[in-house]
Computed example of a mutant assay.
Amino acid sequence: MKYGSLILEKKEYVYLKRILNISGYAEDHDTQKSLMKLSEELKTAHITDDEEMPYDIIRFNSKVTVVFSNGIEKTIQVVIPMDKDVNTNKISVLTPLGSALIGYSKGDTILWDFPNGKQHVKITEVVQEETLSGIDIVI
């Protein structure tokens, strides 16, 4: 892990904690396991101001290219649950892949337990789109 722990922007961290609490960790067992692991990782995450966020950290609306241990390469965008759209490769942070990626950086390799088993995921590219930092988050 490039930075030693997850790095999250303050408002995005608060939003993520809230949606994890409301989600009840989902009904699907695999998704539930991923969200519980993310919740554990958040306990040691480094929380920072927007202007101090490294450019290569995966945050809300980041476009991310990953390579799975089976060689498949995929580009997705990690979004808040209401913005998910599989047709445009926008995945919710509450999915196993979304929860695996948030807070990691370009160059990191993650071992995560997906519905089809544990896989290594290498993050090869992170491009920032508009973030949540300028939005007042109300749940």
Rank of each mutant, 00 (worst) to 15 (best):
A26P: 00
K33C: 04
L94G: 03
S69P: 00
I91N: 08
F114V: 01
V127G: 01
E27Y: 05
K63G: 01
T95I: 06
H29Q: 07
K17W: 08
K122R: 14
S105W: 04
Q119K: 15
L132F: 14
M36P: 01
F60H: 03
V138K: 08
L16N: 08
L42E: 02
P81N: 15
V127L: 12
K10R: 07
S69Q: 06
I57C: 07
S62R: 14
R59D: 14
D56M: 12
G117Y: 13
L94M: 07
Y104M: 07
K90P: 01
N61G: 09
S34G: 15
I47Q: 05
K17I: 11
E125M: 13
L94F: 05
Y55R: 06
Q32W: 00
T75P: 00
K2F: 03
G98A: 12
V126R: 12
G107Y: 02
I57G: 13
V64L: 10
N70I: 05
K118F: 03
T124P: 00
Y13S: 08
N70A: 09
P115W: 07
N89P: 00
N116Y: 09
D28T: 01
I7Y: 04
I47D: 04
V121S: 05
K10Q: 15
I47W: 03
K63H: 01
P115Y: 05
K74T: 09
I47G: 09
K2L: 10
V79Q: 10
T48K: 12
I91A: 07
H46R: 13
K37P: 01
T109R: 06
I76H: 05
K37R: 13
A26M: 04
I135T: 14
F60L: 13
V86R: 12
L35A: 11
S133I: 05
K84I: 13
K43L: 12
D56H: 04
T75W: 04
K33Q: 02
T44A: 15
V78Y: 06
T124G: 09
N61M: 13
T131P: 04
S133L: 06
F68E: 08
T48S: 12
I76L: 14
I102Q: 10
S23P: 04
S34A: 15
Y55N: 07
P96C: 10
I137T: 11
Y104N: 09
G98F: 11
K106F: 02
E51P: 01
D108W: 02
K43Y: 02
D28F: 02
V66T: 01
I139G: 14
E41L: 15
I76V: 13
E51K: 14
V93T: 03
S34V: 03
T95E: 06
S62A: 15
E51I: 03
N70M: 02
T48D: 05
F114K: 05
F114T: 01
L38M: 10
L20D: 04
T75A: 15
I22M: 10
D108I: 06
P115K: 15
G103Y: 10
